[in-house]
Protein backbone atom coordinates (compact mmCIF):
# COMPACT_ATOMS: atom_id res chain seq x y z
CA UNK A 1 0.00 0.00 0.00
CA UNK A 2 2.81 2.40 0.94
CA UNK A 3 5.04 1.83 -2.07
CA UNK A 4 3.16 3.83 -4.78
CA UNK A 5 2.75 6.83 -2.47
CA UNK A 6 6.38 6.60 -1.43
CA UNK A 7 7.61 6.45 -5.01
CA UNK A 8 5.37 9.43 -5.84
CA UNK A 9 6.85 11.60 -3.07
CA UNK A 10 10.38 10.47 -3.91
CA UNK A 11 9.95 11.32 -7.58
CA UNK A 12 8.33 14.63 -6.62
CA UNK A 13 11.31 15.57 -4.43
CA UNK A 14 13.75 14.41 -7.10
CA UNK A 15 12.04 16.65 -9.66
CA UNK A 16 11.86 19.48 -7.12
CA UNK A 17 15.66 19.53 -6.98
CA UNK A 18 15.73 20.51 -10.65
CA UNK A 19 12.54 22.60 -10.54
CA UNK A 20 13.69 25.02 -7.85
CA UNK A 21 16.58 26.55 -9.84
CA UNK A 22 14.42 26.65 -12.99
CA UNK A 23 11.72 28.54 -11.08
CA UNK A 24 14.38 30.86 -9.73
CA UNK A 25 15.62 31.58 -13.24
CA UNK A 26 12.08 32.77 -14.03
CA UNK A 27 12.23 34.92 -10.88
CA UNK A 28 9.81 32.85 -8.82
CA UNK A 29 11.36 32.83 -5.38
CA UNK A 30 8.64 30.93 -3.50
CA UNK A 31 11.04 28.04 -2.86
CA UNK A 32 14.74 28.78 -2.65
CA UNK A 33 17.74 26.82 -1.52
CA UNK A 34 19.02 23.28 -1.55
CA UNK A 35 18.58 20.41 0.87
CA UNK A 36 21.23 21.93 3.10
CA UNK A 37 18.61 24.55 3.86
CA UNK A 38 15.44 25.34 1.97
CA UNK A 39 12.82 28.05 2.25
CA UNK A 40 9.14 27.44 1.48
CA UNK A 41 7.59 30.88 1.17
CA UNK A 42 9.04 32.16 4.42
CA UNK A 43 9.25 28.88 6.34
CA UNK A 44 12.96 28.26 6.69
CA UNK A 45 13.93 24.60 7.00
CA UNK A 46 17.48 23.36 7.47
CA UNK A 47 19.09 19.96 7.71
CA UNK A 48 19.56 19.33 11.49
CA UNK A 49 22.96 17.69 11.04
CA UNK A 50 24.16 20.72 9.08
CA UNK A 51 22.91 23.03 11.83
CA UNK A 52 24.61 20.86 14.46
CA UNK A 53 27.85 21.26 12.51
CA UNK A 54 27.41 25.02 12.31
CA UNK A 55 26.82 25.24 16.07
CA UNK A 56 29.97 23.24 16.79
CA UNK A 57 32.06 25.15 14.26
CA UNK A 58 30.91 28.64 15.25
CA UNK A 59 30.86 27.88 18.96
CA UNK A 60 27.61 29.69 19.71
CA UNK A 61 23.88 29.24 19.21
CA UNK A 62 21.71 31.91 17.66
CA UNK A 63 17.94 32.16 17.36
CA UNK A 64 17.68 32.02 13.52
CA UNK A 65 19.85 28.89 13.58
CA UNK A 66 17.54 27.15 16.05
CA UNK A 67 14.36 28.36 14.35
CA UNK A 68 15.29 26.61 11.11
CA UNK A 69 15.37 23.14 12.70
CA UNK A 70 12.01 23.35 14.51
CA UNK A 71 9.99 22.06 11.57
CA UNK A 72 12.22 19.08 10.60
CA UNK A 73 12.53 18.01 14.24
CA UNK A 74 8.75 18.28 14.66
CA UNK A 75 8.35 15.94 11.68
CA UNK A 76 11.04 13.63 13.09
CA UNK A 77 9.30 13.43 16.47
CA UNK A 78 5.91 12.66 14.89
CA UNK A 79 6.84 10.44 11.95
CA UNK A 80 10.33 9.18 12.69
CA UNK A 81 12.81 9.23 9.83
CA UNK A 82 10.15 10.30 7.35
CA UNK A 83 12.71 12.40 5.48
CA UNK A 84 15.00 9.43 4.90
CA UNK A 85 12.36 6.97 3.80
CA UNK A 86 9.96 9.11 1.85
CA UNK A 87 11.80 12.19 0.60
CA UNK A 88 15.58 11.73 0.53
CA UNK A 89 16.81 11.73 -3.10
CA UNK A 90 19.88 9.70 -2.22
CA UNK A 91 17.84 6.78 -0.87
CA UNK A 92 15.74 6.96 -4.04
CA UNK A 93 18.81 6.68 -6.25
CA UNK A 94 20.48 4.06 -4.09
CA UNK A 95 17.31 1.97 -4.13
CA UNK A 96 17.54 2.16 -7.91
CA UNK A 97 21.16 0.99 -7.71
CA UNK A 98 20.05 -1.81 -5.40
CA UNK A 99 17.41 -2.88 -7.90
CA UNK A 100 20.01 -2.85 -10.67
CA UNK A 101 22.37 -4.93 -8.52
CA UNK A 102 19.68 -7.53 -7.90
CA UNK A 103 18.67 -7.52 -11.54
CA UNK A 104 21.97 -7.95 -13.36
CA UNK A 105 24.52 -8.57 -10.66
CA UNK A 106 23.00 -11.62 -8.97
CA UNK A 107 25.29 -14.16 -10.62
CA UNK A 108 28.20 -11.80 -10.87
CA UNK A 109 28.41 -10.92 -7.18
CA UNK A 110 27.38 -14.34 -5.83
CA UNK A 111 25.77 -12.72 -2.80
CA UNK A 112 22.11 -13.01 -1.78
CA UNK A 113 19.92 -9.98 -2.41
CA UNK A 114 19.59 -9.34 1.34
CA UNK A 115 23.35 -9.13 1.84
CA UNK A 116 24.58 -6.14 3.86
CA UNK A 117 28.20 -5.55 4.93
CA UNK A 118 27.53 -4.89 8.65
CA UNK A 119 24.86 -7.42 9.53
CA UNK A 120 24.64 -6.46 13.21
CA UNK A 121 22.41 -3.38 13.36
CA UNK A 122 23.75 -2.40 16.79
CA UNK A 123 27.24 -2.22 15.31
CA UNK A 124 25.95 -0.11 12.42
CA UNK A 125 24.30 2.28 14.87
CA UNK A 126 27.50 2.59 16.89
CA UNK A 127 29.50 3.29 13.73
CA UNK A 128 27.19 6.01 12.45
CA UNK A 129 26.81 7.79 15.79
CA UNK A 130 30.57 7.76 16.38
CA UNK A 131 31.03 9.04 12.82
CA UNK A 132 28.67 11.92 13.64
CA UNK A 133 30.49 12.65 16.91
CA UNK A 134 33.86 12.56 15.16
CA UNK A 135 32.56 14.95 12.49
CA UNK A 136 31.24 17.37 15.11
CA UNK A 137 34.51 17.24 17.05
CA UNK A 138 36.50 17.93 13.88
CA UNK A 139 34.17 20.79 12.98
CA UNK A 140 34.67 22.31 16.41
CA UNK A 141 38.43 21.87 16.19
CA UNK A 142 39.06 23.39 12.78
CA UNK A 143 36.12 25.78 12.59
CA UNK A 144 34.66 24.40 9.35
CA UNK A 145 31.49 22.27 9.12
CA UNK A 146 33.31 19.30 7.58
CA UNK A 147 30.39 16.87 7.31
CA UNK A 148 28.77 19.29 4.84
CA UNK A 149 31.35 18.19 2.27
CA UNK A 150 29.94 14.65 2.31
CA UNK A 151 26.24 15.23 3.00
CA UNK A 152 24.98 13.11 0.10
CA UNK A 153 21.33 14.31 -0.44
CA UNK A 154 22.27 17.96 0.00
CA UNK A 155 25.18 17.61 -2.42
CA UNK A 156 22.81 16.02 -4.95
CA UNK A 157 20.47 19.01 -4.82
CA UNK A 158 23.40 21.43 -5.00
CA UNK A 159 24.70 19.64 -8.07
CA UNK A 160 21.23 19.79 -9.63
CA UNK A 161 21.22 23.54 -9.03
CA UNK A 162 24.67 23.97 -10.56
CA UNK A 163 23.76 21.89 -13.61
CA UNK A 164 20.65 23.94 -14.27
CA UNK A 165 22.17 27.34 -13.56
CA UNK A 166 25.79 27.13 -14.67
CA UNK A 167 25.87 23.95 -16.84
CA UNK A 168 28.91 22.59 -15.00
CA UNK A 169 29.59 19.84 -12.51
CA UNK A 170 31.70 20.29 -9.44
CA UNK A 171 34.06 17.93 -7.66
CA UNK A 172 31.41 16.80 -5.20
CA UNK A 173 29.49 15.06 -7.98
CA UNK A 174 32.35 12.59 -8.11
CA UNK A 175 31.71 11.77 -4.46
CA UNK A 176 28.09 10.82 -5.21
CA UNK A 177 29.16 8.70 -8.18
CA UNK A 178 31.88 6.98 -6.13
CA UNK A 179 29.38 6.27 -3.37
CA UNK A 180 26.90 4.76 -5.82
CA UNK A 181 29.60 2.64 -7.46
CA UNK A 182 30.72 1.35 -4.06
CA UNK A 183 27.12 0.56 -3.12
CA UNK A 184 26.63 -1.23 -6.43
CA UNK A 185 29.76 -3.31 -6.31
CA UNK A 186 30.98 -4.24 -2.83
CA UNK A 187 29.15 -2.58 0.06
CA UNK A 188 25.40 -2.28 -0.57
CA UNK A 189 23.40 0.14 1.64
CA UNK A 190 26.60 1.26 3.37
CA UNK A 191 25.99 5.04 3.35
CA UNK A 192 22.51 5.12 4.89
CA UNK A 193 23.29 2.27 7.29
CA UNK A 194 26.64 3.27 8.67
CA UNK A 195 27.48 6.90 7.86
CA UNK A 196 24.70 9.34 6.90
CA UNK A 197 24.90 12.20 9.46
CA UNK A 198 21.41 13.50 8.68
CA UNK A 199 19.84 10.12 9.40
CA UNK A 200 21.81 9.80 12.63
CA UNK A 201 20.60 13.15 13.94
CA UNK A 202 16.99 12.48 12.90
CA UNK A 203 16.91 9.09 14.62
CA UNK A 204 18.05 10.72 17.86
CA UNK A 205 14.62 12.32 18.13
CA UNK A 206 12.73 9.06 18.52
CA UNK A 207 10.24 9.44 21.40
CA UNK A 208 7.43 7.28 22.70
CA UNK A 209 4.89 8.95 20.42
CA UNK A 210 6.95 8.56 17.25
CA UNK A 211 5.44 6.43 14.50
CA UNK A 212 7.25 3.09 14.08
CA UNK A 213 6.79 -0.45 12.82
CA UNK A 214 5.78 -3.00 15.47
CA UNK A 215 5.62 -6.77 15.22
CA UNK A 216 2.85 -8.92 16.66
CA UNK A 217 4.82 -12.09 16.10
CA UNK A 218 4.68 -14.57 19.00
CA UNK A 219 8.29 -15.61 18.79
CA UNK A 220 10.13 -12.60 17.35
CA UNK A 221 13.55 -14.29 17.34
CA UNK A 222 12.64 -16.75 14.56
CA UNK A 223 11.51 -15.65 11.09
CA UNK A 224 7.82 -16.43 10.54
CA UNK A 225 8.13 -17.60 6.96
CA UNK A 226 11.03 -19.38 5.34
CA UNK A 227 11.22 -16.83 2.52
CA UNK A 228 12.03 -14.07 5.04
CA UNK A 229 10.08 -11.69 2.83
CA UNK A 230 10.57 -8.67 5.11
CA UNK A 231 14.36 -9.14 5.29
CA UNK A 232 14.59 -9.30 1.52
CA UNK A 233 12.78 -5.99 0.90
CA UNK A 234 14.13 -3.80 3.71
CA UNK A 235 16.07 -0.88 2.11
CA UNK A 236 18.09 -0.42 5.29
CA UNK A 237 19.18 -4.06 5.52
CA UNK A 238 17.34 -4.77 8.76
CA UNK A 239 15.61 -7.99 9.80
CA UNK A 240 12.18 -6.53 10.53
CA UNK A 241 10.72 -9.67 12.16
CA UNK A 242 12.98 -9.15 15.17
CA UNK A 243 14.31 -5.57 14.98
CA UNK A 244 11.40 -3.68 13.43
CA UNK A 245 11.60 -0.76 15.88
CA UNK A 246 15.34 -0.22 15.36
CA UNK A 247 16.73 3.31 15.18
CA UNK A 248 17.83 2.53 11.61
CA UNK A 249 14.24 2.04 10.44
CA UNK A 250 13.11 4.74 7.99
CA UNK A 251 9.35 3.97 8.15
CA UNK A 252 9.21 3.14 4.45
CA UNK A 253 6.53 0.47 4.99
CA UNK A 254 8.01 -2.08 2.60
CA UNK A 255 8.10 -4.80 5.27
CA UNK A 256 4.52 -3.98 6.32
CA UNK A 257 3.41 -4.54 2.71
CA UNK A 258 5.44 -7.70 2.20
CA UNK A 259 4.51 -9.55 5.43
CA UNK A 260 2.57 -12.68 4.51
CA UNK A 261 0.75 -12.90 7.86
CA UNK A 262 0.16 -9.16 8.39
CA UNK A 263 2.11 -9.29 11.62
CA UNK A 264 3.99 -6.04 11.01
CA UNK A 265 2.05 -2.82 11.51
CA UNK A 266 2.66 0.89 11.82
CA UNK A 267 1.94 2.21 15.27
CA UNK A 268 2.58 5.45 17.03
CA UNK A 269 0.99 8.40 18.78
CA UNK A 270 0.72 6.14 21.83
CA UNK A 271 0.01 8.91 24.28
CA UNK A 272 -3.21 9.68 22.43
CA UNK A 273 -4.25 6.03 22.44
CA UNK A 274 -3.57 5.68 26.15
CA UNK A 275 -5.73 8.71 26.81
CA UNK A 276 -8.55 7.17 24.79
CA UNK A 277 -8.38 3.98 26.80
CA UNK A 278 -8.68 5.82 30.06
Amino acid sequence: MCLPYRRATQIFVFCLMFAVPILNIYELYFITGTFFAINFGGLGVADPSVILQAIFAAGDITIPVLASVIFPLFIAILLGRFWCGWLCPFLFVSEGVEWLRNLIGQKFFKKPSSYVPIRNSFKANVIRFSFLLLGCATAGAIGIPVLNYINAPAIMSTEAMIIVKERVLSLEFGFIIALLVIQFSVLPKIWCRAFCPTGSVLSLFRTSITMRVTSSSRNPTVPCCKEESCVRVCPMGLEPYRECGNLLCVNCGKCVDSCLFNRLKFSGFEIKRRAEKM
Binding site: V20, P21, N24, E27, Y29, T32, G33, T34, F36, A37, I38, N39, A46, D47, V50, I51, Q53, A54, A57, A58, G59, A139, G143, I144, P145, N148, A154, T158, M161, I162, K165, E166, S170, L171
Partner: peptide, 25 residues
Protein backbone atom coordinates in the same frame (compact mmCIF):
# COMPACT_ATOMS: atom_id res chain seq x y z
CA UNK B 1 33.14 33.09 11.52
CA UNK B 2 31.72 33.05 8.02
CA UNK B 3 33.47 29.78 7.21
CA UNK B 4 32.01 28.25 10.38
CA UNK B 5 28.49 29.56 9.92
CA UNK B 6 28.05 29.16 6.17
CA UNK B 7 26.35 25.81 5.57
CA UNK B 8 26.81 25.93 1.77
CA UNK B 9 23.05 25.92 1.13
CA UNK B 10 23.56 28.21 -1.89
CA UNK B 11 20.36 30.12 -1.16
CA UNK B 12 22.11 33.45 -1.71
CA UNK B 13 23.31 32.17 -5.09
CA UNK B 14 19.78 31.22 -6.12
CA UNK B 15 18.16 34.48 -5.07
CA UNK B 16 20.73 36.83 -6.60
CA UNK B 17 18.89 38.52 -9.51
CA UNK B 18 22.14 39.59 -11.18
CA UNK B 19 23.93 36.25 -10.93
CA UNK B 20 26.77 37.94 -9.09
CA UNK B 21 27.28 35.31 -6.43
CA UNK B 22 29.37 32.35 -7.56
CA UNK B 23 30.06 29.04 -5.89
CA UNK B 24 33.64 28.54 -4.75
CA UNK B 25 35.50 25.63 -6.30
Amino acid sequence: KFMALCIRCNRCMEVCPYGSIKRAG
